[in-house]
Design a protein around this nucleic acid. Structure first.
Length: 295
DNA sequence: ATCCAGGCTCCTG
DNA sequence: CAGGAGCATGGA
């Protein structure tokens, strides 16, 4: 059966920007972009379905194909898509701030309606961020593919088999040597295993950071060996959907700024903080729009 | 070949 | 405390 519903974004939204970001790699393991539609196998709490997402004015259409599905499950799927594409965030305040900023003004004009592509799964966010330290995006996609293929659980959807992102329980059960075999450095393998243990044991969770400001949350996360300022802020940005996460030193951020400002060298961290002085509270979206400028 | 990728730890002076 | 090597891998 196919169930259809719409999700309206909270404020400006242009689906084309979601497509551009989601379709940036042909190595993506968890979903597919094809002819303007996003196809994603979904398996959660015993509900298996294929999602087909397409754009509409200021929102998306979602088609859910599944053998059986409850209204409650459809609501969960709606919440999942909303979180993934960041459809519920009120971004008008960001636009108001950006309009007066010499770096951001042209970007919000050019990429009107672009929203951060978030990562709804808390553990997956960590894996992506940790794996992505100091290597090119291309290689992170390869690592993600290996993680999913080798350690992800299978889900049966409409007669076909798909693999989901590995659970923290599964990853925590692996020897670090095994984890290293998916092109992770030893430190990254140890760190991912540790985070897997912590998530599986409930020592860290999204809910735990409810009401905790971003700087304090970052301070907690960097206590974990292998997680530094960049990784913690990245998790805050894409996983916990904070407005004010700022992955300083991020190579994409640095390069985008260099290009936007026409510099013949990379801006220093001090200079970046200076540029960002007026972004107060919207560093996440500022960073994402700069990333968007590199696609 | 050499350098750099959406970094972090550890060691040195 | 700043500075630099080492880590894994693939692309330019």
């Amino acid at each position: 059966m196919v169930y259809k519903f719409e999700i309206n974004a909270n404020g400006p939204y242009n689906y084309e920007h979601s497509l551009a970001f989601l379709g940036r790699s042909d190595k993506e393991a968890l979903f597919q972009v094809n002819a303007g539609k996003i196809f994603r196998p979904y398996a959660c709490d015993g509900v298996n379905a294929m999602l087909a997402i397409s754009g509409m004015k200021n929102g998306v259409n979602v088609e859910v194909s599944s053998d059986i599905i409850s209204g409650e499950s459809l609501e969960k799927i709606s919440a999942f898509v909303t979180e993934w594409l960041d459809l519920d965030r009120d971004i008008l305040a960001f636009y108001n701030m950006a309009a007066g900023d010499k770096i951001l003004a042209p970007l919000v004009d050019k990429y009107q309606g672009a929203r951060i592509t978030c990562i709804p799964d808390f553990f997956e966010t960590f894996c992506w961020a940790i794996a992505g330290q100091s290597i090119s995006l291309h290689v992170v996609y390869i690592i993600k593919q290996l993680l999913v293929e080798r350690f992800g659980e299978e889900a049966q959807i409409l007669g076909k088999r798909y693999r989901m992102f590995p659970t923290p329980e599964k990853i925590s059960s692996l020897d670090t040597e095994v984890l290293q075999s998916v092109k992770l450095t030893r430190n990254k393998a140890v760190c991912i295993k540790r985070v897997a243990e912590m998530v599986a044991a409930g020592e860290i969770s999204k809910q735990m950071f409810d009401g905790v400001d971003t700087k304090a949350a970052v301070k907690e996360l960097v206590k974990i060996k292998g997680i530094g300022g960049w990784t913690a802020n990245y998790v805050m940005l894409r996983g916990l959907r904070r407005n004010d996460a700022f992955p300083l030193g991020d190579s994409g951020l640095v390069n985008a700024l260099r290009i936007q400002l026409g510099l013949d060298r990379k801006p220093t961290e001090k200079e970046i903080l200076d540029f960002a002085a007026g972004w107060n509270g919207w560093e996440s979206y500022a960073t994402f729009y700069l990333w968007r400028s590199l696609l």
